[in-house]
Amino acid sequence: MDFNQLISIIVSTANFYAIWLILSLSLNYEYGYTGILNFGKVLFFSLGAYSSGFLAANLANIMAGVSFDICSVEAVQLRLDLAKAVPQLPLLVFVASLIMGAALSAAVAYLLYISTSRIKEGFVLGIILLSAGETSRIVVRNYEPVVCGYHGLVGIPNPYTAAGDPTSASFLLSITIWVIAGVAFLFINKLTATPYGRKLKAIRDNELAADIYGKKPSHERRKVLMIGSAMAGVAGVLYAYYLGFVAADDFTSLKTFDIWVAVMLGGVGNHLGAVTGSLVVTLIDRGTRVLRVFLANLSIPLETLYLRWIIVGVLMLLILMYRPAGIIPEKSIKTLGLLRIIERIKREKT
């Protein structure tokens, strides 16, 4: 165990953590603040990933003035060569993908929301989003022009190819992922630590009352779903660039459940909950892999490969049993007025 090994463990864990953090922050914003049951989170995540693959592949073709099939091995080679020849290009495409991923996800969220505006039941909207996610996966899987269908799109170049050697390029990409996750955290904190955030919680807790006070629940929900989806789209772009690869088969509904697990374990309705929840989920994955090999060494006469998942399940249940409101439960909002009232009560008591 040396220093380099430790660093590389931390870096790759942190990369996945940062991407999951953005996803759980956005889901927590949607569910924890307005009660939207987004069971189709993976749809918006995948849209970001598809946009990066689509842009990286087609822009390389346009730049080189060729019309290769984007899925052919020649096109893959071209993408990688072009990145080396014009090192600024991948960074530009990366920025373009971030914008396109966020915009596309928000647009699809908008369309889905307005086409289901008649639906009052949150659960039904959730099931529609779940079905929409599966539908888009199966369509993209069988439709090559987007990201090569079931072949998957290989060879998305690292945005920092200009840095020269692959190690520093990938480290720069990791830093970018962490910075974007940090910005997402600050953004969502800033956004909800205002009267706006309290308005959203009011809508969540009593929609009718909020409506009567003129808070337009449907309008606000639509906005929240669009912002949350744009964030998921950004996470999808980061994911695609981190792997350098996109395939529709990666975006099954099980991913949505994983994000829900992170949010629920962490604690709904507060951002620290999402931060903790996604950390726990990331650590459970890496930790149990290690734990499994450790158990295998104790000569337990069982197939330990599957034990890992059982441990994951038991850990989740333990957290839920002993922290049913999540590891970090939601606290009541302390406004200035409320603090003053509490102060006064305390003074009167003494």
Binding site: W260, V312, G313, M316, P324
Partner: peptide
Amino acid sequence: FILMVASFAVSLI
């Protein structure tokens, strides 16, 4: 939805 997450854990187990 906590129950849903718990059922997800049960299904894993």
